[in-house]
Amino acid sequence: MAASAGQELKGRVAIVTGASSGIGKATAVLFRRRGARVLAVARDRKRLDALAKESGAEPFAVSLDSAEACEQTVAAARKLGPVSILVNCAGRGGHEDKPIFDQSPAEWRATMAVNLDAPFELTRLAARDMRDQRWGRIVMVSSTAGEVGAPAMSAYCASKHGLIGLMRSVAHDVAPYNCTCNAVLPGWVKTEMADRDAEKEAARRGLTAAQVWQERADAYPAKRVLSAEEIAEVIAFLASDAASGVNGEAMTVSLGSLW
């Protein structure tokens, strides 16, 4: 039986990482509005508690930088029921700001742990529930930086490229079980992480953060940047029954620009 209007995800158990702010938070709120039972995952317990109060999502505070933390996350989600949807949105960015010859192995490993290793671990575990249910949706939140390079961002760009490759392989593995795996590649979205990046760029170039954001907007045909809610809507579509025929796709959401 089809879900009633506005309840497209009713009864689905969803893990949304990076849920304390930005795209992850917008996705958790939208999923709850559409009927999903949501495990909202992030490091900041205070923000997660506020999100839980606002939306009814189940908060789970953890740093997704180890396999053990990912196992704990999936175990917590299973208390709500078998996992049907996984949105890998947690990300680490804006920590490099140095050309490759000045970057440290520690920064590389820290970025990879959150941006690529955690999605692998969470997908590996959650996909077993989806296989057993013969229904599942996995969405990797990559970036337009997953298809192009950028100066002083080698670890971030490499991790986002890797996320797309992981998605394309997983899509083949899960397809026989009525499951899909896709990626969303947002362009510039007004989030706290992007704000921090804008402030760093502004300081480096002798501009204000507002001027940097204006440059970003001017680079897009629509002359504006995106909102977290716009990205969440695309993720919700990919997580729905309506997207049953979409698998292995890297969906760019950048207002017509490649970056």
Rank of each mutant, 00 (worst) to 15 (best):
A3N: 15
A5Y: 12
Q7Y: 11
V13H: 06
V13T: 14
V16D: 09
G18S: 07
R37D: 15
R37P: 00
R43Q: 13
D44H: 13
R45I: 02
A50S: 12
K53L: 12
V62Y: 10
S66C: 03
A67H: 06
E71C: 01
Q72F: 00
V74A: 06
K79V: 07
S84G: 13
C89R: 13
A90M: 02
G91E: 14
R92Q: 11
G93C: 07
H95E: 14
D102E: 14
S104Q: 09
S104V: 00
E107T: 07
W108A: 08
A113M: 12
V114T: 15
L125C: 07
Q133G: 12
T144M: 13
E147I: 00
G149F: 00
S154Q: 04
A155L: 07
Y156W: 02
L163T: 04
L166K: 11
S169M: 03
H172A: 08
T180W: 07
V189E: 08
T191Y: 08
E192V: 05
M193I: 10
R224M: 11
R224F: 02
S227H: 05
A228S: 15
E229I: 00
E230Q: 14
E233H: 08
I235F: 02
F237E: 05
F237R: 08
A242D: 15
G248C: 03
T252F: 00
S254E: 01
S254D: 15
